[in-house]
Each structure stands twice: as C-alpha cells, then as structure tokens.
Simulated scan of single mutants.
Amino acid sequence: MEEKIKNIIIKALQNLAEELENENLAHPNDTTKIYGIDGNLDSLALVSFITDLEEMIDVEFGKNITLADEKAMSSRNSPFKDVASLTQYIQNLL
C-alpha cells in the first residue's frame, strides 16, 4: 500500500510540475520538498495538489479522505513537508 500511495503522490506532483513549469517537481522522490521551508508549492498550488491527490486516492482505494484538516494544517511537523511524510500520513488515514 505504501508504494501505491507514494506513486500517486509522485504522479500528482508531476502533473502539477507541468502546470507550474516547475522543474524541481518533474522527478520527485521521497525527499522532494512539497510545502513549507524550501517547499516547491505555494499555498494556492498546495490547494490544487491536495484536491488532485484526494481525487486520485478515491479512485485508487475507493476511500474519500480529507487531507487538509485542521490537525494536519496546524501540526508542527507538517505532513506536507515532503513525499515521505505525506506518504506516511495518507497511509495512516487509510
């Protein structure tokens, strides 16, 4: 399941990389920064990314989850820091 989640995140980032013309997101891996310090997405791009990701997870796993809840957004260790932390966060939600 972890590998499937990671692949979905990577695909969503690659899709966004094309839209934003952001080369840093063209070939994401576990340590690719998503949001926050040195992150590749601003707040508007993060919203788009989260929406796409939630849809992709629903299609793949048949589960409707909310990634941007109050707990996630106010956490000191943001799950949106990098690919690895987001993978773990989604796995815990599923």
Rank of each mutant, 00 (worst) to 15 (best):
E70M: 14
R76K: 14
F80L: 02
A45S: 05
K4Q: 15
F49K: 03
I37W: 11
P28R: 05
K6E: 08
N40M: 03
S74W: 11
G62L: 00
A45D: 00
S78Q: 03
V47W: 05
I37Q: 10
A17K: 08
F49W: 07
F49M: 06
A72E: 03
E3N: 12
K63Y: 15
D69I: 07
A12R: 09
E70V: 14
L44A: 12
D42M: 04
L16G: 07
N64A: 11
E2F: 14
S43A: 05
L44R: 10
E2H: 13
N15F: 09
L93I: 05
I10G: 05
M73W: 02
A26K: 08
D69F: 09
F49D: 06
R76E: 13
A26L: 09
V47A: 05
T87E: 03
D82Q: 03
L25V: 03
M56C: 05
A26Y: 11
S48G: 13
F80D: 02
Y89A: 01
I34L: 00
I65F: 12
I57Y: 10
E21M: 14
A68M: 06
I8S: 01
I37H: 11
A12E: 10
T87D: 01
N7W: 00
N15D: 11
S43I: 04
E2Y: 13
A68V: 04
M73F: 08
N29W: 10
I50C: 08
L53V: 06
L94D: 07
F61A: 07
K63W: 12
D52K: 07
A26Q: 08
L13W: 04
L44F: 15
V59K: 08
L46N: 03
I10Q: 04
M1W: 06
I5E: 01
A84T: 08
D30W: 08
L20H: 15
G62D: 02
L93M: 06
E21Q: 15
Q91N: 11
I65R: 14
G62T: 04
I57H: 09
